[in-house]
Simulated assay, not measured.
Amino acid sequence: MKKLSVLFAAVMMVVSVGTAKAQKIATLDVMGVLDAMPEKKKADADLKTFLDAKQAEIKKKADAGQAKLKQYTDEAPKKTAEENKAREAELSKLNEEINQMQDKAQKDFVAKRDTAYEPIEKKLNEIVTKVAKDKGYDYIMDANSSAFIYRAGIDATPDVKKALGL
């Protein structure tokens, strides 16, 4: 019985040492930090300007197509079947051009967004790594993640914002 008590005490010591070396985990409001960064605000404004310009270009082409459609529809009874067929083909080609412009604008936007956000994300990751090392965190998790059911640990958001000068 005495050996069992000593064994139990030894197991408890090992468990308590393991608990004392528990990993430090913190959370971070990633979107909150990103939204506070001036670089992201500028990138967002530049992307909005880019997108607005592309949409205006597409709208201009679509409006021209609508005007042609109205004109061709009004004139159709006075035209021959061949002329109407040629006009229909022209309108179909114009519609395809508009669809291609939309696809290209979307691809250009994604490429521009990725290029604009890459240095911002790199800077944030470097700061998060620095804060984690300085504060001794083993993990920093995104506080906005839906994987969290309960969160009551350390919040690293103020430390990261401070390190970024926000």
Rank of each mutant, 00 (worst) to 15 (best):
D108W: 08
A86T: 00
A111C: 06
K79Q: 15
T80M: 04
E118K: 15
Q66N: 11
E82Q: 10
Q100M: 08
A81W: 00
E121T: 07
K93R: 05
K61L: 03
I120S: 07
K112D: 09
E97G: 10
S92L: 13
D108C: 08
A116P: 12
N84C: 11
I58V: 09
E57T: 01
N99I: 08
E118A: 15
K104N: 11
D103Y: 07
E121M: 14
E121C: 08
E57F: 00
A81V: 02
K70W: 02
E126I: 08
E88H: 03
E83L: 12
A116T: 05
E97D: 15
D103F: 06
N95V: 09
K68A: 05
K112W: 07
V128P: 03
L94Y: 15
E126N: 11
G65E: 04
A105W: 04
K59C: 02
K85H: 06
K60Q: 14
D103N: 10
K70S: 11
V110I: 13
Q102D: 11
E88L: 06
F109R: 11
K68D: 10
A64Y: 04
D108F: 06
K112L: 02
T80C: 06
E96C: 00
E118M: 09
D63H: 02
V128A: 04
V110T: 12
L124Y: 12
I120V: 13
L124W: 12
E88Q: 11
Y117V: 15
K107Q: 13
I127Y: 03
P119T: 14
K54T: 03
V110C: 05
